[in-house]
Amino acid sequence: MPSNGSSSRRLLLVTAACLSLWLALPARAEWFQQNWAIMGTEVGARIWWQDADQAAQLLALVRAEMERIDTVYSPYIDSSELARVNQLAASQTQTLSPEFARLVDKALWVNRISHGAFDITYASVGHLYDYRSGQAPDDAQIAANLPAVGKLHWQPHTRQIRFAHPGVKIDLGGLAKGYAVDSAAALLREHGVQHASVNAGGDTRLLGDNLGRPWLIGIKNPRPGPDDAAWQSVVKLPMANEAISTSGDYERYFIDQHTGERVHHILNPATGKSSHGLISASVIGPEGFNTDPLATAVFVMGAEAGLAMINQLPGYEAIVITSSGEIRYSSGLTPPELQ
């Protein structure tokens, strides 16, 4: 990905580039795409390949990898490694698998650079919310569970984890999808795929470009009007061989019947309540494993602090939409009106 100094043209909507590369691609190749309901969201992959049967096998690999990650790290599957840790780590130290340890290491890194805005122990309070039935914990329940947030002992060299409070629960939802799209894209690359898009909810990982031109990735309008399409982009970004993750308050939410407030799933670990100030935060970078948790962190931190953090990370950019509808950009991006 270009450094901050050379990425000011990112928002230019490039429509014709490297056409000679497109003409050089195999004439019989075509796009193949499948979508599945995995990890509590819609997951999909689109690949450019020359054989339909082989394409089906490649897409099956993507699906299997997504299902594997969900099976291991879902808090809702009793047999998952994550569920076992949540059940036992408060009473006895648990040794994690190398992959699980990588996820914890990543989570704690983002926790440090975001000054606690991203915290996998938010689930100590987060598990009290039921978005399907529109139920939120009351202030007393939040106050009783909030002391468990952050109470985690981690030994990276031995991969050992221990909860320092009986109420601790962890949830990897803020980085597992980004990790999953990276992992699935790596499998495709290993099998020779050069042009592909893998997505899981708000996370997308791109392989190569879109046949000699950039992929144009839209950021969803969080507040479409009554006459707008259900999915309408507010910004389109030309991208190639990188990742983008978006966190928004429109993904899982309900309206509190008493206060009229939007209660959504992106909780501020410091308060145990939905974060307000932003309605969308998108982060662009080389890896979904980073852009996914960084997008959540930026959302919780807010426009000023969140963009300041991204501006300190070489190779990463961000676009945020405030509750007033203002679109703001990290330092390496040029707003469309300034082009």
Rank of each mutant, 00 (worst) to 15 (best):
A230S: 13
W231V: 15
W231M: 15
Q232C: 13
V234G: 12
V235R: 09
V235Y: 07
L237V: 11
L237K: 05
M239C: 04
M239S: 00
M239V: 01
N241A: 11
E242S: 08
A243C: 07
I244A: 03
S245Q: 06
T246I: 03
T246S: 11
S247Y: 03
D249S: 13
Y250C: 12
Y250N: 11
Y250F: 12
R252H: 11
F254Q: 05
F254G: 04
D256K: 07
Q257Y: 15
Q257I: 14
H258V: 15
T259A: 08
E261T: 12
E261S: 13
R262C: 12
V263A: 07
H264Q: 06
H265Y: 05
I266A: 05
I266H: 09
L267I: 03
L267D: 03
N268R: 05
N268S: 10
P269K: 10
P269Y: 10
G272Y: 04
G272M: 03
K273C: 15
S274L: 11
H276R: 15
H276T: 14
G277Q: 07
G277V: 05
A281R: 04
V283F: 01
I284E: 01
I284M: 00
I284R: 00
G285A: 06
G285W: 00
P286Y: 06
G288Y: 04
F289A: 13
F289T: 14
F289G: 13
N290K: 15
T291A: 06
P293L: 02
P293M: 00
L294I: 02
V298P: 00
V298C: 00
F299G: 06
M301P: 08
E304D: 14
E304H: 14
A305E: 12
A305L: 10
L307S: 01
L307C: 04
L307V: 02
A308D: 11
M309L: 11
M309C: 02
M309A: 09
M309E: 00
I310S: 01
I310P: 02
N311L: 01
Q312W: 12
